[in-house]
Amino acid sequence: MNGLINVLKPPGITSHAVVLSLRRLFRVQKIGHTGTLDPGAAGVLPICVGQGTRVAEYLVNKPKSYRAEMTFGITTETHDAGGKVLKRLPGVKLERARVEEVLQDFIGEIKQVPPMTSALHYRGKRLYKLAREGKTVDRRARKVHIYEIKLIRFDGELPYPRLLCDITCSKGTYVRSLCADIGEKLGCGAFLSFLVRTASGPFQLSVSYTLEEIKDRYERQDFSFLLPIDYALEEFPALIVKEKAVPHVLNGQPLAPAGIMGGVGKSDRPLVVRLYAPDGSLLALGNYRCSKNGEWYYKPQKVFCLLHQNI
């Protein structure tokens, strides 16, 4: 089995547990996710299977989108609903205009200190495991990018005001830390009370599958949940390889212009391309190269050898 799966992770289980469940179901070893989603959060979790794991690096770096709820006036140890409450400030009064103003302050490049409950490694051990042992270590602030925070609903009359918003951000962004920082800037504190990932790169929540749906379809030999590997590669232009050059590409040999159907113009030479056989089968990803004498070619960097099928 080779391809990608858009899994709808339920709250209450880890991303690793999703991988283990599918590994047992499919009886495969090569399988993994493309970015941890907190156990308490639900939403899109792209899974790579078989040769699909070879394109995971192109998915990890893509922007992520979330629908998040912040509750103001309460701070927790983990910045989310799963942590011990540290402080309560009932009766907080916030004006919508002020909240919108502060949200705009977090658009663009910001620095975040990873929470102790994150899955980052520190000297070979996950931070959340150290946190369970009651340990706290220094963490270096990291740069992340917030592309958009769109306010959906604000309930300012509640004893603890709530804000529902859509957030689009770069990889490595901790939404719970973002919520805590927004609450701190507003002077009342806040925690992440609800989170669902609505998109991860090209993967959308509206076309995701639960583990139960995947299991049911797989047992009926219905592989409609399995996306092709090139679903993650649409940003790279596609070139068709002439039939006689297909074996050379599959063997990792350079692809000269004579082996490309239709030709490539002098000013139209993408740095990375998808290489396909005439029948539409994905062969490889190729990188642009140019020799000292000016002759250019594409060097296959990732050869997929899918034998004209994904399953």
Rank of each mutant, 00 (worst) to 15 (best):
R132Y: 09
R139K: 14
F203V: 02
M116P: 01
R289P: 09
S200K: 01
K129F: 06
Y58P: 03
Y288R: 04
Q29K: 15
T136D: 10
R162G: 06
D230W: 03
P159A: 02
V196W: 00
H145E: 13
G108I: 06
H33C: 02
K111V: 10
I149W: 09
K266G: 06
R197W: 12
V28I: 11
M1L: 09
F72K: 04
R176Q: 08
T198S: 11
N310C: 08
Y209G: 01
F225N: 05
G262T: 08
V44H: 00
L127R: 05
S224K: 05
V207S: 15
L163S: 05
D230Y: 08
S170H: 06
F223N: 00
T75C: 14
E133A: 13
A41K: 00
V92C: 07
L211R: 08
E295A: 09
S21Y: 07
N2H: 14
V249W: 12
D216W: 14
A284I: 05
P254E: 04
P159S: 02
L285W: 02
A41I: 08
L86W: 15
E101R: 08
K111D: 10
P300D: 05
L45N: 11
N251S: 11
E69M: 12
L285V: 02
T168P: 00
R96Q: 12
W296D: 06
S281N: 13
T14H: 12
A131H: 09
E95H: 01
E184R: 13
G201E: 10
L285D: 01
T117N: 10
R269A: 05
I167P: 12
E109Q: 14
L233K: 01
P159W: 01
P10T: 06
G3Y: 08
E101T: 12
V60P: 00
R27E: 15
V92A: 05
L307Q: 15
A199Y: 03
T78G: 05
L20S: 13
L37D: 02
V49M: 14
L306Q: 10
I240S: 14
G52K: 01
G50S: 10
G201H: 07
G83E: 02
F26E: 07
P247L: 13
T78F: 01
C305W: 13
S208G: 09
R96C: 03
R274I: 01
